[in-house]
Simulated assay, not measured.
Amino acid sequence: MKILVCIKQVPDMESRFKVNSSGDWFSDADLAFRINEYDEYAVEQAVQLREQLGDSSELTVLSIGPDRVQEAIKKALAMGCDRGVHIQDPDVHKKDPWQVASIIAAYAKGKNFDIIFTGFQSQDRGSAQVGVTVAELLGHACATTLVGFEYADGAVKAKRELEGGVKGVVRLKVPALVTCQLGLNIPRYPTLPNIMKAKKKEIEAIGVADVLTEQPLSVTASFYPPAKKGGGIVLEGDVADLSDRLISILKDKTSVLR
């Protein structure tokens, strides 16, 4: 069985974000980066399936982006993936979900992956569209927001998280794509021996132009922080005086709005 897991490197959400000089994304100068949280659940589930199937399977981890995404790929390799694929694209942040999915699908087409794992959504964009679009482009069965996964006899049994906390179970024949959600598993920490082994594993670097021969339309976007608002007013003193002052302030604000 051939398994593919797609991951994205995103900024640590505790970072302090600043708009870049071109105004189309955030500046990554002082940011720390990590694997997208939902993609870690995807990697863990893919590794568990790889362990279940043994030597009859191969697990590939794929990521799109600049050179720094190789650190995310190396972590996935240390978690148990067999080989890595880095699609080199320093401008991936300028692409919309359809364009990103088109790159993944173009790479995967013809390689006969039986199961593809992705995260439910990315923490920086949050569109939740890439995984399902890849499935559509490849013509694969698809189940989203997985919180349970089983594989046997060429079929996937997927437990999905639906609206209101309801759990739904679907069965998919391979080839299939699933998107992974919080609650599916607990991602493992790479051990030191596995980190050392990962250094010897192959990471294939491919230019995005070599994968997607027909370049999609460019997307022009602007990115800016919300406008700053005035500060609040703290009133102190006796309750009787405060009520009169509050009424006076509200009258002033109302007259300005008129």
Results as ranks from 00 to 15, higher is better:
Q99P: 03
I186Q: 14
A32Y: 05
R68H: 13
Y41H: 15
A152K: 10
L192Y: 08
T220A: 09
P225L: 13
P187R: 05
D89T: 04
Q70I: 14
S56T: 12
G23I: 07
K251V: 15
T213Y: 02
K167D: 03
L4P: 03
L242K: 13
S102A: 15
P225G: 15
L59Q: 01
G148Q: 05
S22K: 12
G232A: 05
S127P: 01
V169Y: 02
S21C: 06
V132I: 14
Q215R: 04
D67R: 12
A227I: 15
V47Q: 00
D55G: 02
S57N: 00
I87Y: 01
E71V: 14
N185S: 11
A72P: 11
L217C: 06
I3N: 00
K159S: 04
K157M: 04
D67E: 12
A155V: 14
V85N: 07
I103H: 06
G148T: 01
Q52T: 10
K253L: 15
T179H: 01
P226E: 13
E71S: 14
K173C: 05
G165T: 02
H140Q: 13
M196S: 12
D89Y: 02
T60W: 07
G232V: 04
I104H: 11
T179K: 00
L62I: 15
K253E: 15
K201Q: 14
G183D: 10
S57T: 08
T220G: 10
A46D: 00
V5I: 07
I247K: 13
S243N: 05
L137R: 09
K109Q: 14
C142Y: 15
V169F: 04
V61E: 06
L192H: 02
D55A: 09
G126Y: 04
F117S: 01
K2I: 03
K197T: 11
E58C: 11
E14N: 10
Q181K: 08
